[in-house]
Design a binder for these strands. Structure first.
Lengths: 226, 226
DNA sequence: AACATCTGCAACCGTTCGTTTGGAGTTCGG
DNA sequence: CCGAACTCCAAACGAACGGTTGCAGATGTT
């Protein structure tokens, strides 16, 4: 039979995504990845180096496309809701993605493949800016970050969920809730941006604290738990 | 010298919190925990059983108090912003907390110490309900969940952040942003709840999808990435 | 066809990890 | 003051892990 080293590498990357998503870098076993891929584990070392390098390769391969193909189409808060709905659906269909994203932040010092990921994110920020023209770029970036945090949180913080809400939650309920929250966030941020624009404060990279109450002092009198 | 077994256990729990927060369950080393605590690692087995049981003990000890002492005081969206500000400050002062929360969801099947944590969460939900009387209990629970997801995400998803926003972010900027987002979420959800109330739909545990556009179909035509 | 080169695999190696054990010191009731 | 029960530790143990090696078969080039 002819050899297909690319297929072997792909099988390893896919099995790596499954195993690393399930157990993280420290918890995943090279042996198990090889077995999952139906390939001898030695291949990992020849193709990717060592375990860390392979982990980075898997993360790059999967996470670079987290937002790929998703788009902010239309205008207004509905556009933001639709975008988050797409993101949620992708997270449900590929549950490894949000988990890998979390493992990356927890187990790695720096993000992998930023060169590929940054322009994708920037493109989503552009979409947000056209959907919500009242926002400046800084605010749009922060909004994108919060939207991803919401989607990932609602997909993967199941244990926290069982402490906050009573029983388990249907997927449709969760989906509708996150979309509603995303829209609420979009409308709220638009209003806040317009208000801060109208108040004449010079637009800066860092959005000024909202006008509601005075800026929050760091709460000197907090008990120093445990 | 007199023995102080309680102090020994406390030292182990504290060192365990540090080590597990840094490396997770699979990544943390019993040896390192013992060394960090200045105690022989064998103590862990006599006091807590095995590594898993010790992990659960550490999580219970730390996470039960994640929201302890935090309160939703006042009314309106500002109250929600203040609450999130408190939560953020706690996360900054105790960086193990958000990390342990994430490890718990990633590495454990079920939440630890739900019996203690649920009433604490319910109390925060009560606070949200008095601050935003337009919300029903389901919506308030979901809001609390999203607020925690936002706070934890902004504290611990640093790698994602470097892909979304350009350089690093000052803590004060982050704090102001999350508080603004929390307020925006609160006002947006209030409006959404009032609208759905006015539209005469019977209030149900699961909030009805917002009225903006039709409910989102699961997007049949999505490419099936990799 | 001969040669070097590459793929794929089973077995192996040295280390590290979680867990246990044996024993020396300490406390406390009677 | 005796002895059972407990605290603490150094050392050891067996399993599991990341990584390597040696070899048999396949490929491509000349």
């Amino acid at each position: 039979m002819a050899w297909d080293t690319d297929a072997t590498q792909r099988k390893l990357l896919l099995a790596g995504a499954r195993q690393f998503a399930a157990a993280g870098f420290a918890g995943a076993r090279i042996e198990a990845i090889g077995a999952d891929a139906g390939v001898n584990k030695e291949r990992i070392y020849r193709y990717f180096g060592d375990k860390r390098a392979f982990f980075a390769a898997v993360l790059g391969h999967e996470l670079a496309g987290l937002l790929d193909g998703l788009d902010v189409t239309g205008t207004g808060a509905e556009a933001i809701g639709d975008f988050v709905a797409q993101l949620l659906d992708r997270c449900e269909r590929h549950p490894e993605l949000p988990r890998l994203l979390l493992w990356e932040s927890l187990e790695l010092d720096a993000a992998v493949a930023i060169e590929q990921r940054r322009p994708v994110c920037a493109h989503k920020v552009d979409g947000i800016l056209t959907a919500l023209p009242a926002l400046d770029r800084g605010r749009a970036e922060h909004l994108l970050f919060s939207l991803i945090a919401l989607a990932v949180g609602w997909c993967e913080l199941g244990n926290l969920g069982s402490a906050v809400v009573g029983g388990t939650m249907e997927w449709e309920t969760r989906r509708a809730t996150v979309v509603a929250h995303a829209r609420a966030l979009a409308t709220g941020m638009t209003e806040e941006a317009e208000a801060s624009e109208a108040s004449g404060s010079p637009r800066s990279a860092a959005p000024a604290p909202p006008a509601g109450t005075a800026t929050h002092p760091p709460l000197a009198a907090e008990e120093s738990r445990s």
